[in-house]
């Protein structure tokens, strides 16, 4: 292995203990007689020790208060039947967006079927329209970008 390749490893897998024993030995062997690699190792160790002195910051008490208020306010707003309906649909739809879309589609089909077979009165139509609006708004809220939905990789299983 040439010096550049070794330096790559020094900056990543070697420093982060991601190398197997054999490769690590090869790298160490090179470093033991290469001045420029030795310098890099030293600089990287300095960098690491600078980070190791950092302690985490605790957020101000007000932050928890705000979170608590935001959650409890929203919950009291959702207490009505609409909230319960959204919750029920939510727990059915939660795990995967594809499932979610599938179930929304299925629900729409069911509602349409009900609508066409019944010679429905005004109130029936009003109810359907409302239910569809809720479904649509809920499926839109599933498009949250920041919350990962593809859980459950082997790596994550391993971590638990």
């Amino acid at each position: 292995m040439n010096c550049d390749k070794i330096k790559n490893m020094l900056m990543t897998d070697h420093l982060d203990h991601e190398l197997g024993d054999k490769k690590r030995e090869l790298v160490d062997q090179h470093v033991s007689h290469c001045k420029s690699c030795q310098e890099l190792v030293r600089a990287l160790q300095d960098q690491r020790s600078a980070f190791s002195q950092i302690t985490p910051h605790t957020p101000p008490v007000q932050v928890w208060q705000n979170i608590h208020d935001a959650i409890t306010n929203k919950e009291s707003c959702l207490k009505g039947w609409k909230g319960r309906l959204i919750d029920t649909i939510g727990s059915l739809l939660a795990p995967k967006p594809i499932l979610a879309l599938g179930s929304v589609f299925a629900m729409m089909l069911i509602l349409m079927a009900v609508g066409t077979t019944h010679i429905a009165g005004r109130s029936q139509h009003a109810y359907e329209a409302e239910a569809l609006t809720i479904l649509a708004s809920y499926s839109a809220s599933l498009d949250q970008v920041d919350v990962p939905t593809d859980f459950g990789t082997d790596i994550e299983k391993f971590l638990l």
């Binding site: 979170i67 920041d146 994550e156």
Partner: peptide, 29 residues
């Protein structure tokens, strides 16, 4: 800004806890 992000993160966590499956690591999530 960091406080606002922190609030945002925990509100998201709260509302998505029921969709969290235990096959994944909570911390990673």
């Amino acid at each position: 800004d960091a406080q606002e992000v922190t609030q945002d993160v925990f509100i998201k966590i709260y509302h998505h806890l029921s969709s969290f499956r235990f096959s994944s690591a909570f911390k990673t999530w």
